[in-house]
Design a binder for these strands. Structure first.
Length: 272
DNA sequence: CGAACGACCTGCAGGC
DNA sequence: TGCCTGCAGGTCGTTC
């Protein structure tokens, strides 16, 4: 479920239930995720207060006084806030219990992660090399222009590289490139400055709107109906192969880039 | 150093 | 009905 807007939505959804709360117990039901869930979590988190909760890229970070819990949802992770007693389901991996409710992580494909660090989060190996947050000023046309020079990797692949900018996954990379009218195969270094401006703006706009529409799902997280997704979302290219471009009616084309579905309009996103 | 690619998993849809 | 293939919103580690 994760692209940045979904993770941000989860973060906002769980925040009222976590922030300032004391962990009552931790349960590891199925430790095998991308990396094993550290077995010592139950003992070191018991009775500790969640002092902070934030997002970096697609990582959720639970800050404690003596360290931080890093959580990634991978491809299929779902984090629910539960209050009543819910029977354990297939692929439930991890649970953080507070006094009034608990968080339960379900992850079918096990690409997600639950990790612990007792050092500053910013220097954690998975965090330290991450690029800027797409919604902050640090991600701007100057940065992108500079960064892409001499790079021949297709711009779409480049945009999805977390070392360049975090949080732009396959769906929104497709959408942003359509918005900026840039062909996904364009070598990154061939993008003009003005195209960088458009692309940066497109990324910001699309992610912001997705977060806004994702906001309406917060209740479902809280209630556990948890249907995370892209419903309220009007995707213009992703998943619309062969359907008419909303701009010019040309049937959209799909190709594979790095094994990922890449959909675009050959008219609106003409090759350079 | 950058770039390409395989690897990690399960479940589902579609073709035969 | 069942088997097979390919595909799914991610990203790390290895190799070149």
């Amino acid at each position: 479920m994760p692209e940045l807007p979904e993770v941000e939505t989860v973060k906002r959804g769980i925040e009222p239930y976590c922030l300032g709360k004391k962990v009552q117990s931790v349960h590891i039901y199925h430790p095998r995720l991308r990396w094993p869930i550290p077995p010592f979590l139950p003992e070191i988190l018991k009775n500790k207060e969640i002092k902070g909760l934030w997002r970096r890229g697609k990582y959720l970070i639970f800050q404690f006084e003596h360290g931080a819990l890093l959580l990634h949802l991978g491809m299929s992770g779902i984090l629910r806030v539960l209050t009543a007693n819910h029977p354990l389901q297939k692929h439930d991996h991890f649970e953080l219990r507070m006094d009034e409710c608990y968080l339960r992580l379900n992850d079918t494909r096990r690409f997600g992660a639950v990790l612990w660090t007792d050092k500053a989060v910013e220097i954690h190996p998975l965090i330290v090399d991450l690029g800027p947050e797409p919604l902050l000023e640090a991600f701007n046309a100057d940065y992108l222009f500079q960064k892409t020079r001499k790079r021949l990797t297709p711009i779409k692949t480049y945009l999805m590289n977390a070392k360049v900018v975090v949080g732009v996954g396959n769906i929104y990379a497709n959408e942003a490139l359509f918005d900026a009218r840039i062909h996904p195969l364009t070598p990154a270094g061939h993008i003009s400055f003005s195209q960088c401006e458009q692309l940066v703006q497109a990324v910001k706009t699309i992610l912001t709107q997705a977060i806004l529409s994702g906001g309406s799902t917060i209740r479902s997280f809280a209630n556990s109906e948890g249907k995370p997704g892209y419903f309220a979302q009007t995707l213009r290219v992703y998943g619309r192969k062969d359907q008419p471009c909303k701009q010019c009616k040309t049937p959209l084309k799909e190709i594979r880039l790095q094994g990922r579905s890449t959909v675009f309009c050959i008219t609106c996103q003409a090759e350079v």
